[in-house]
Design a protein around this nucleic acid. Sequence first.
DNA 1: TACTTTTGTATCGTAAACGATATAAAACAA
DNA 2: TTGTTTTATATCGTTTACGATACAAAAGTA
Lengths: 146, 146
Amino acid sequence: MKEEFKLDNQLCFRLYTASRLMTQAYHPLLSEHGLTYPQYLVLLVLWEADAQPVNDIAHKLYLETNTVTPLLQRMEKEGILIRQRGQKDARQMIVSLTRKGWDLQKKLADVPFKVGGAVLCDSVTPETAPTLYKMLNDIISKLKND
Amino acid sequence: MKEEFKLDNQLCFRLYTASRLMTQAYHPLLSEHGLTYPQYLVLLVLWEADAQPVNDIAHKLYLETNTVTPLLQRMEKEGILIRQRGQKDARQMIVSLTRKGWDLQKKLADVPFKVGGAVLCDSVTPETAPTLYKMLNDIISKLKND
DNA sequence: TACTTTTGTATCGTAAACGATATAAAACAA
DNA sequence: TTGTTTTATATCGTTTACGATACAAAAGTA
């Protein structure tokens, strides 16, 4: 068995697993408010800057619009946000938070701390986290081609 | 805007993005052979040890059987593997590679190198990769509760 | 043995992801 | 202005993920 084929040596598999397990860690905190993790990411984007076109949201999340559009439609149906045609450019759909969307910010205030604490371990601490962040950022930068 | 709500500060978002982009990097190499990334992971598991029950495969991939079962059914339909009821325990489904499944190992021999090379950058090198591996492993260990 | 619980897989429903394609508005070019 | 290309979003089909549930075989218990 060649070393490079061993599951334990696969960087991608570790990223894939760590990502899924972290998302699962968010699940109980988010489902309590009827949210999924990708929907939470959309909220993070809109809390930083409200009233953005679909394209900007998708770009910030490194997702395609064909992923984001249905996601936003579901969130609109839940009354978390509204989608309106742009006035300057009628092709754009401007996404804005409703009162309910803003209220969620207060309700989810403790989520980052709870999840942050859940991953602390020997090798990942407040001191070493920046190293991990930088590595992940560099991988993302290297792989995204736009 | 609170710092902990900023997208850039979210470890999970970086893992999620890095994982998706790495999977996308595999895509052209795998789709050429009619495979998806999770199907490739199943092959990695079976190449290490053929003829395993569904449960063992799922466990090694940190996935649930309700994810793995349909995935294996599709791979069986493609003639990559076969699923047979266990003889000692009739509840088990023993998954074994076909000739076609083993042949893929040779055809995919260059995949780990191609993808490995695609992520090399300033902070992720053959020297620093073990640090990243350890951090991801520790996060996985911390989050999996079994 | 008969009954209960556990275990291994499968089925179902929903929500991502994402390649491929469609469509209308805007930008550009002839 | 008319025709072409680009852009922003949406729709469609397929494959994960995963919670909830179903079901039969095995294990444990009375």
